[in-house]
Amino acid sequence: MALSPKNTDVKALFNTIAPEYDKMNNIISFGTHKKWRQKVMSKMTIPMGAQILDLATGTADWALALADSSDETTHVTGLDFSEEMLAIGQKKVDLSDYPDRITLVQGDAMALPFDDHTFDIVTIGFGLRNLPDPTLGLQEMFRILKPGGQLVVLETSQPDNRIIKPFWKLYFGKVMPVFGKIFANGKYTEYQYLDQTTENFMDYMTLGKLMLNTGFKKVTISRFNLGAAAAHYATK
């Protein structure tokens, strides 16, 4: 299994890119990351009074969307290891309609600071590939989910179409780092890293099998943009 590139201080990297993170997400994905999340949300069932954990919450976009799509008794906890990303996310939460229903905490997705069987739903968007050990991360997600709880993983993926794949590699390998240099105050190296994690991360079928091997059941997969991203849904 391919892990994150060695010798990369991922926390420091995300602290560095935090000020431009939201803008760059929109530029790099041409806004499609929002549509992907909307499609994923449309397939989720959120029970009343749910306890939801959004891992790698970053600037809290998915945490806010989860609060917006649930009833007023539902609580969303967003966890991230980058204090700079969380600081931006907290400002969004404070200005939202849900400051009392969203709690942002700093923590490690591979050593979650929660008791067993705490959450009804766990989500992680574009964060699993940044864990040094995705298997350990999935094991932690399984541990803190309640029996019957839902896991939703939205992640970049690799197209398997022979015609599309070379253009995909060109975009992520060459174009995206240049965007970082132009639009993110010269952060070329940081966006090279993000390309490496995208290109080296396991394919969607391997991830599905890993989830099953972790103990999850009923794993289903949706792919977006000719395989550029994939959503995995599973239950404990």
Rank of each mutant, 00 (worst) to 15 (best):
I27G: 10
I27A: 12
I28W: 11
F30M: 13
H33R: 14
K34A: 14
K34I: 13
R37G: 12
Q38G: 08
Q38I: 07
Q38C: 08
K39I: 03
V40G: 00
M41L: 15
M41C: 13
S42N: 14
K43Q: 15
I46D: 11
P47C: 10
P47G: 10
G49Y: 02
A50W: 00
A50T: 10
L53V: 11
D54G: 08
L55G: 08
A56R: 03
A56D: 04
G58C: 05
G58E: 07
G58V: 00
T59S: 14
T59D: 06
A60I: 05
A60C: 13
D61V: 06
D61E: 15
W62L: 15
A63M: 03
A63Q: 04
A63K: 06
A65Q: 09
A67L: 10
D68E: 15
S69M: 03
S69E: 07
T73I: 03
T73F: 05
T74I: 11
H75V: 10
V76P: 01
T77L: 00
G78L: 01
G78A: 04
G78F: 00
L79P: 01
L79H: 02
D80V: 02
F81V: 09
S82I: 10
E83V: 07
E84G: 01
L86W: 02
L86H: 07
I88D: 05
G89P: 05
K91D: 13
V93F: 05
S96H: 01
S96R: 03
S96Q: 06
T103D: 08
L104M: 09
L104Q: 02
G107F: 00
G107N: 11
G107D: 09
D108F: 04
D108N: 15
D108S: 12
A109V: 15
M110L: 08
A111M: 11
P113H: 01
F114W: 13
F114A: 12
F114Y: 15
D116V: 07
H117S: 14
T118A: 04
F119V: 12
F119C: 10
D120K: 12
D120T: 13
I121Q: 07
T123L: 11
G125T: 15
R129I: 11
N130I: 01
P132L: 01
P132F: 00
D133A: 07
P134F: 13
P134E: 12
T135W: 01
T135M: 01
T135A: 04
G137H: 05
G137W: 01
L138W: 11
L138P: 01
L138V: 06
E140L: 00
